[in-house]
Amino acid sequence: MRPQQNPMVLVNRDLLVLLMERTGDGRPASVRDLAQAAGCHPSKIGHLRSGTRSTATHDEALAIARRLGVDLLVLWEHTGRTVEAPSEPLHMAAVPA
């Protein structure tokens, strides 16, 4: 079993959109492209772009930053002991069984 990771917080959604238009190699990255690189569903990338979601796992955040050609901390902020992770909107929470 994988140890639980503290989520990473997206610093600026507008910067994410801008970097997707022109990555480190000069080519655009689509939502599907980023999702494939991060190993997540494309809707998660869409929610990050729109601002309805602001967190991702460390592995997802690192994969997104690498695909865009930037350092991790250009787009993401660590959470944990010093930075509290924001709570996601209620509609994003799991429904109790």
Rank of each mutant, 00 (worst) to 15 (best):
S50T: 10
M8S: 11
A35P: 10
R22I: 04
S43E: 14
R32E: 15
G26M: 09
S43Y: 04
D59G: 06
L16S: 01
A29E: 08
S54P: 00
P96D: 03
R27E: 15
G46F: 02
A97F: 12
D14E: 14
P89F: 06
S30N: 09
T23W: 07
L10S: 05
P89S: 03
P89M: 05
A85H: 03
T57R: 11
R13T: 02
H78D: 15
E84W: 04
I64S: 05
D71H: 10
W76I: 02
T82F: 13
P3Y: 13
V74C: 12
T82D: 14
L48C: 05
K44L: 15
V95E: 15
L10G: 03
P86S: 07
P28N: 09
R67V: 04
V83H: 09
E84L: 14
G69N: 05
T79W: 08
L15E: 15
A93P: 00
Q4G: 01
T82I: 08
G26K: 06
A38G: 04
A61D: 07
W76D: 03
T55A: 10
D59L: 09
S87K: 14
A63H: 02
R53A: 12
V83I: 12
G24V: 02
R2F: 08
R67D: 00
E88W: 01
V70Q: 05
G46C: 07
E60F: 05
L73Q: 10
V83R: 12
R32G: 14
P42A: 09
R67T: 04
S30W: 04
W76M: 09
S43C: 10
S50K: 12
A38H: 05
L15H: 03
D14C: 02
A37S: 08
L68Q: 01
A94Q: 13
T57H: 05
H41A: 11
A37D: 07
G26I: 05
P96S: 04
A37F: 04
P3H: 11
P3G: 08
P86H: 04
H41S: 09
S54D: 11
W76V: 01
E88K: 08
V70E: 01
A56F: 06
V95Y: 13
L62P: 00
D59A: 12
D33L: 10
T55F: 10
K44T: 11
D71K: 09
H91M: 13
P3A: 13
L75V: 06
W76S: 02
T52W: 04
T52H: 04
T52L: 06
L73Y: 14
A61T: 00
Q5M: 13
V83Y: 09
G24M: 08
L72P: 05
S87V: 13
V11A: 15
L16M: 07
E60V: 03
L18C: 11
H41Y: 10
D71F: 01
W76N: 01
H91D: 15
A38N: 00
G39K: 03
A56P: 06
E88A: 13
S87A: 15
I64R: 07
N12K: 07
R2M: 13
G39V: 00
H78G: 05
T55P: 10
M92T: 10
R81Q: 15
G39S: 02
I64V: 12
T55M: 13
E77S: 10
E21T: 02
T82Q: 13
P3F: 14
